[in-house]
């Protein structure tokens, strides 16, 4: 009997030690309580927020940006416009591969400075081939190079978007103007969408984005270019914080050759409509049935 008692005492001692060690092991998590508020933890899905709730969320996010980055920013909810269906087209005959679009995206969308992230990747391809396997994104020489052409790739805003299909929590969806958005405060960070996307359009925040205060773009949207939290997925939004207010995407404005055409396909007088009607346009990986809203064409 004393043996059993001794054993029990030892067991209790072991359990206490184990529990204490476990508390120590997960102690780093306590750092989260300083940065993650209960309000954020319990925030509802964007589509379920009442207008009042949404305003409160926007103000909270602004305050958090001020706290973490030291900048006064304006975060708006910019809804889609009636009677608008966005489409993008890119003229491969005149793109020179200068990557100005990628750079403009980086600045406009408050991307992490450390990784030099951008929603656009530019492929340098051999003339006479459309085989992306032979394309390169890491070219480092004066452009345009002899015998090469250039193909910038970003989110294709697919009508039949695999990323939206696979999301287990409906954190990403297509808005009625065709833009696929992410609720950065609902995404659980499983990265299934990243696996599903055939165009390498999605990015994950592997760490907390680093954006210096003086470089921060303060005009931000909830579903757009606000600074993303750590551990969630993000993507190109056709600069909805600009385009839904009648402006053009930053990548288009930065293009020195005018290779990019953007607009509302429902507007019969728009340039994008003219391109789609008069040029022999094509989409990437058409055989996958994703039905992109991003078109490519050559002049001749």
């Amino acid at each position: 009997m004393t043996d059993r008692k001794k054993r029990r005492t030892l067991k209790i001692l072991g359990a206490t030690l184990g529990a204490g060690a476990f508390a120590r092991a997960i102690a780093p998590l306590s750092a989260l309580s300083e940065t993650t508020s209960m309000e954020e933890l319990l925030q509802q899905h964007y589509q379920e927020l009442t207008p009042k709730d949404l305003q409160r969320v926007l103000r909270r996010l602004e305050a958090e940006t001020k706290r973490d980055y030291g900048v006064d920013v304006t975060i708006e909810d910019v809804p889609p416009l009636e009677g608008v269906q966005f489409a993008y087209a890119l003229n491969l005959s005149i793109c020179i591969g200068c990557r100005k679009c990628a750079e403009a995206c980086h600045e406009e969308n408050n991307h992490d400075r450390g990784t030099g992230n951008s929603y656009i990747r530019v492929l340098e391809m051999d003339q006479g081939s459309m085989d992306m396997e032979r394309g390169r994104t890491d070219y480092d020489h004066t452009v345009p190079a002899e015998g090469k052409f250039y193909m910038p790739v970003q989110c294709q805003q697919c009508e039949n978007a695999p990323c939206v299909t696979v999301c287990p929590v409906e954190a990403t969806w297509q808005e009625k103007d065709g833009i696929v958005v992410v609720d950065y405060n609902w995404c659980i960070g499983c990265r299934y969408c990243e696996a599903a996307c055939p165009y390498h359009a999605r990015r994950f925040n592997w760490n907390k984005p680093d954006v210096p205060a003086e470089e921060m773009n303060p005009n931000q949207a909830y579903l757009g270019n606000r600074v993303r939290p750590q551990g969630v997925v993000e993507k190109c939004t056709f600069c909805l914080h600009r385009t839904r207010k009648g402006r053009l995407p930053a990548c288009l404005e930065a293009c020195p050759t005018g290779a990019r055409v953007f607009g509302n396909v429902l507007d019969p007088d728009s340039e994008i409509r003219w391109v789609l009607e008069n040029k022999r346009v094509f989409v990437l990986k058409e055989e996958l049935g994703t039905r992109p809203r991003f078109y490519y064409f050559f002049d001749e």
């Binding site: 989260l32 299909t165 287990p168 929590v169 409906e170 659980i188 960070g189 990265r191 551990g231 969630v232």
Partner: peptide, 22 residues
């Protein structure tokens, strides 16, 4: 998961489970 604190988003009823599509 990048955001284990949001695991509850997967729970039917309180979260938004994208079933049966995902």
């Amino acid at each position: 998961m990048g955001r284990p604190d949001r695991l509850w988003h997967l729970i039917p009823g309180i979260g938004r489970m994208h079933w049966p599509i995902s």
